[in-house]
Computed example of a mutant assay.
Amino acid sequence: MSGRESQVAAAIREAKEQRNGALIGYLPIGFPDLGTSIDAAIAMARSGADVLELGVPYSDPVMDGLVIQDATRTALERGFRLRDVFEAVRRVREAVDTPVLVMTYWNPVVQYGVDRFAADLAAAGGAGLITPDITPDSAAEWIEVSERHGLDRVFLAAPTSTDERLGLVARSTTGFVYTVSTMGITGERASLDAAARGLTERLRAQGAELACVGIGISNAAHVATALEYADGAIVGTAFVRALRDGGVAGLATVVEEIARGTGRAPDPER
Results as ranks from 00 to 15, higher is better:
M1N: 11
G3L: 15
V8P: 09
E14A: 14
E17I: 02
P32Y: 11
I38S: 05
I38C: 09
A40R: 00
A41S: 15
A45Y: 03
G55P: 11
V56Y: 03
P57H: 03
S59N: 03
D64I: 00
R73M: 12
T74H: 15
E77R: 13
F80L: 01
F80E: 02
R83Y: 07
V85E: 02
V89I: 11
E94W: 03
Y105I: 00
P108T: 01
P108V: 00
V109S: 10
V110Q: 14
Q111G: 05
Y112F: 15
Y112P: 00
D115C: 06
D120E: 15
D120C: 04
L121Y: 03
L121N: 01
A124F: 08
G125Y: 07
D133N: 09
I134Q: 09
E141N: 05
H149K: 12
H149R: 14
V154A: 04
E164A: 14
L166K: 07
L168K: 14
V177G: 02
G184T: 00
T186W: 04
R189Y: 03
S191R: 12
A194G: 06
L199I: 06
T200A: 14
E201Q: 15
R202I: 04
L203C: 07
R204G: 05
R204H: 15
Q206T: 04
G207Y: 13
G207E: 12
E209T: 09
V213L: 09
G216C: 10
A221M: 07
H222S: 01
H222W: 03
Y229V: 01
I234P: 01
G236W: 05
G236E: 08
D245N: 12
V254I: 13
E256I: 02
A259P: 10
A259Y: 05
T262N: 06
R270A: 15
